[in-house]
Computed example of a mutant assay.
Amino acid sequence: MTNQRTIVVGFDGSEEAKRAVQWAAKYAVVRECSLHVVHCSLWVLLSNNRGPVPGVADSGLERAAQKVLEEGLALAQETVPDLEVRTTLLHGTPRDHLARVSLGAEMLVLGSRGLGGFMGLLVGSVSLEMAATAECPVAVIRADDHPEGPVLLAVDDSGSPAALDDACRFAAATGADLMIVHVLHEPAGYRLLREPVEAYPDAEALLDSVLSQARHKAPGVTVAGELLFDASFSKAVVKASQGARITVVGTKGHGVIKGTIGSTAHAVLHHAHSPVLVSRRRVTTEVA
């Protein structure tokens, strides 16, 4: 019987995409999901003649795209031999297809930059756009990987309930510890000018509430929390991400430009020292 719970991973043959496929395969097996490897061929944008070259076996642009997809499939099967994997070859840009293909999926997994990435651009435009528009959680896989580290969850003043769900789900599936942080804004030089405040009752109450919810949602997980102080929410989260297995952040999807995310999620995607999961999941009452 086909597993209805699926993790979708975009693959374009780049080193970043290879890491994404391996990561997605490993996570799919612990979540008891199937894996769907998707390659979006750009050749349709460049040429109408994609058929084989006469007299040349195994040639042509269409066949080249199929080979990329086959490479992704082989990599997933090599990483987790018994994993249920299917593949899809689509024509057009990833932004044209990935949000649609991942609709209803457990997660969409992408490399930090694809073949079209610019040197010096830490996260490609496709990953940023999917983090803002996909209707499922989006994991962006970086070279920084700490498979034995904790799950880091950053919560805002709302308690980030969707991100909490995803972080608990990830920690429960992988057996990782869960570290929950909440950042309080503190202007640069504040502690040099004023005596530090001894207590922050509202923030402490919020963090205690989130910790309690986490322990209820993932009873087998070791959960800890910490209040952080910084002039920048994203800077504090990036610093805390060192050594994390994955950093989970929420997004309301209210970037200034359509198809963008908020500044915090954007900065964390670019600079975190771990893979990043941008949570876009509907809140549920328990962890599955």
Rank of each mutant, 00 (worst) to 15 (best):
Q4L: 02
G10S: 08
G10P: 00
D12C: 04
S14L: 01
E15H: 10
A17Q: 13
K18H: 03
V21Q: 09
K26S: 09
K26C: 02
L35N: 12
V38A: 13
V38K: 07
S41T: 11
L46E: 05
V56W: 03
S59Q: 01
G60Q: 04
G60N: 03
A64G: 05
Q66R: 13
K67Q: 12
L69N: 04
G72I: 00
L73H: 12
L75W: 04
L75G: 06
E78D: 08
E78G: 11
E78R: 02
L83P: 07
V85I: 09
T88R: 13
L89S: 04
L90Q: 15
L90G: 15
H91S: 11
G92T: 04
T93E: 13
A99V: 07
S102R: 13
L103W: 13
G104P: 13
R113S: 12
G116N: 07
G124Y: 08
S127F: 05
A134Q: 10
D144R: 12
L153S: 10
L153N: 06
A162N: 15
D165T: 02
T174H: 10
I180D: 08
V183T: 11
L184S: 08
E186L: 09
P187M: 01
G189K: 06
Y190N: 11
R194H: 15
P196V: 01
P196K: 11
V197Q: 15
A199W: 11
D208Q: 07
Q213R: 14
K217Y: 07
A224H: 14
A224T: 14
G225Y: 01
E226C: 00
F233A: 15
K235A: 15
A236Y: 04
V237N: 05
V238Q: 14
S241W: 10
Q242M: 11
G243M: 03
R245Y: 13
T251Y: 06
I257N: 07
I257L: 15
K258P: 07
G259A: 06
I261V: 15
A267G: 05
L269W: 14
A272Q: 09
P275M: 12
V276H: 11
V276T: 02
